[in-house]
Design a protein around this nucleic acid. Structure first.
Length: 607
DNA sequence: CAGAATGATTGGAG
DNA sequence: CTCCAATCATTCTG
């Protein structure tokens, strides 16, 4: 009960100040000249590090946050090629409607965003509750809230017009490749290449973001580039591994390979690297004569190698990092190299094992011991397969096979009518005598719900009116929670501060007590009763009377659909009598982003 | 023109 | 979600 009393005291103090302040307001419309007002707000201004000279100039105060107040919400989600796609797929009128919807959503978000920001600034100006950084942070939160909301809305618009409809996916692909397939500039490639070689071949998200900024490419493109780069580097490496192995296994005669080099089939650089790797030669830049020496007596060198170092050198020559970079610019082990290394280790183990047991039968015994007498069919097949390529079947069978991943069968995929071959699809379309816009195939009708309507646009809207309400808006029931949980601060009674109606954000947070019980305290010369502040459904444990609550609502972006609904932003996308327009609306008064500014309802306050 | 290079997509795996 | 392997489609190059 003590803490309760304490709180009450604090509250009463604030209350008494407010009461005085309020009476000043009532008696004197000139806010600045009131003694109390001056000292109270001046103190707050000083406390939060604002320039005292502007404590009575709202415009000057606002100017501090000009850039936060005026920054635009970019419609970054709309690109030219997206509009082109829409136009190509759905026609001019859908594009126009889509643009209209996006624009009005944008306008709406911008306006609301500004209102919220201004309300916040007004609050802070009257009763500072944080320093400049805090205010900027909060403003930015408001900003990103609306920016996110806008992109959610746009997402919904896309769904509504069927942008993500399965029928258009392949269309999107061919169009996007049509439009997007342009080579990166040398400068960009250099940046990426440098990063790949010198810093990491696997940038994390932050690094990707950084690269995205410096190159101007999207994160997706960065990812794609690194994927391709890694994959292709691996392939190069694999190729070299294979070639080296071939040499070591004496499957290819050297003369042949040198001829290949001369004819350009493999580069001299490749050859050099192979030789360096194969014979564990020191990597210097003066190897001109080495290959000759090698070619003269391969057998001798190889046998020397084998006997002197227990065949371990057979596994891999040790390249310096620099040399390796030249042929396959790795500086970190990739999964593939790890796999290969593991295979190698097994090979070595087996080699040693073989040396120990000179009798080949004993190794066979080892094998059977390991796997059981009756080999599984899979293993059997594997063994058979490897037996063909190598006489050293025991070693091979005990080698860990690379995991072979299932990949979709092209023919099978085609058989179950999944468009696997995009060329085929293009052919199919171009065979039809559909209008072709700027070399891009027009849309297929086939998978849309069968309809007798003649134009594709009609088909689309038919489709939307039939399916969209259940697909696009199936989550309305989830969202409805939000619509009910308005964050309207309900001042049942807060005594005599009705003059502060305009200033909703109070500079404190205090804990909740049972909001149903009325707390009555007699303090000083004031008797007041209050039911404090309740924020329904927001939280069971806290009462927030500060803008801190905003961040609790950032997660509520799912309300975008409702917002769009509420402000009829879908109207431009839809026919008048579709089901969508009959979806649940919620009260204008019920929707607030946070308990900021005018959203707080002071109408019920009783003096 | 053939083949290499390259940006992007797809579908499976983790 | 990221990554990989395979693949496609376009563009570059000899």
């Amino acid at each position: 009960m003590d803490s309760l009393k304490e709180k009450s005291l604090v509250l009463s103090e604030i209350h008494s100040k407010f009461t005085k302040l309020a009476s000043k307001f009532q008696n004197n419309s000139d806010l600045i000249s009131t003694d109390f007002h001056t000292s109270f707000r001046q103190k707050l201004f000083v406390d939060y590090g604002y320039d005292l000279s502007i404590y009575d100039e709202e415009t000057s105060f606002f100017k501090l946050f000009e850039s936060q107040l005026d920054n635009e919400i970019p419609v970054e989600t709309i690109h030219q090629d997206e509009l082109l796609k829409i136009e190509i797929c759905f026609g001019e009128s859908v594009k126009t409607k889509y643009l209209d919807a996006v624009n009005s959503a944008h306008k709406f978000c911008l306006q609301k965003c500004r209102e919220q920001k201004k309300a916040l600034l007004r609050d802070i100006f009257m009763l500072p509750s944080g320093n400049k950084e805090y205010v900027i942070k909060t403003l930015n939160q408001i900003h990103s809230y609306f920016a996110d909301m806008l992109s959610q809305m746009i997402e919904q618009f896309r769904v509504t017009i069927g942008f993500y409809n399965a029928n258009t996916v392949s269309m999107n692909h061919s169009i996007s490749t049509c439009i997007n397939q342009s080579r990166f500039t040398d400068e960009i490639k250099q940046i990426l290449e440098d990063y790949f070689c010198e810093i990491s071949d696997r940038p994390n998200h932050c690094e990707k973001l950084e690269l995205s900024k410096t190159t101007g490419l999207s994160i997706k493109q960065i990812e794609t580039w690194f994927n391709n780069r890694r994959n292709r580097a691996e392939k190069d490496n694999e190729k070299l591994e294979r070639l080296t192995t071939e040499f070591l296994d004496k499957k290819v005669d050297w003369e042949d390979k040198f001829t290949a080099v001369r004819s350009g089939k493999i580069t001299a650089k490749d050859m050099r690297t192979i030789i360096i790797q194969a014979f564990d030669l020191p990597c210097t830049d003066l190897i001109e004569e080495e290959p000759l020496a090698v070619s003269e007596d391969i057998e001798a060198i190889k046998s020397n190698e084998s006997s002197s170092s227990k065949k371990s050198t057979k596994t891999r020559g040790r390249l310096t990092k620099e040399a390796r970079k030249k042929v396959a610019p790795y500086n970190k082990s990739s999964p593939m190299t790890t796999k290969i290394a593991m295979m190698r280790t097994n090979e070595v183990k087996n080699d040693i094992l073989q040396e120990d047991s000179k009798d080949p039968i004993s190794t066979t015994q080892y094998s059977t011991q390991l796997y059981g007498n009756e080999l599984s069919t899979g293993f059997d097949i594997f063994q058979q397969a490897t037996t063909d390529v190598s006489d050293n079947s025991v070693t091979k069978t005990k080698m860990t096979p690379l995991k072979i991943r299932h990949r979709p069968n092209k023919d099978l995929a085609r058989a179950i009518s999944q468009p696997y071959n995009r060329t085929q699809q293009n052919k199919q379309i171009s065979n039809e005598n559909e209008p072709v816009i700027s070399g891009v195939p027009s849309i297929q009708y086939t998978s849309l719900p069968s309809s007798s309507t003649s134009s594709f646009e009609e088909d689309i809207f038919d489709y939307i009116s039939t399916y969209a309400p259940t697909t696009s808006f199936s989550n309305l029931s989830d969202i409805s929670d939000f619509s009910q949980s308005s964050d309207i601060v309900d001042f049942d009674q807060f005594n005599d501060i009705s003059t502060l109606n305009n200033y909703s954000t109070l500079p404190f947070v205090f804990e909740q007590y049972d909001s149903s019980s009325m707390l009555t305290q007699s303090l000083n010369d004031h008797d007041f009763t209050f039911n404090a502040v309740t924020i329904p459904n927001l939280s069971d444990t806290s009462i927030y009377v500060s803008t801190d609550t905003l961040q609790d609502h950032v997660s509520e972006q799912a309300s975008a659909v409702d917002m769009a609904n509420q402000y009829n932003l879908f109207d431009s996308l839809l026919d008048n009598d579709t089901n969508i327009t009959q979806q649940t609306y919620f009260d204008d008064s019920n929707f607030t982003v946070g308990p900021i500014g005018e959203n707080i309802d002071f109408n019920d306050i009783e003096p």
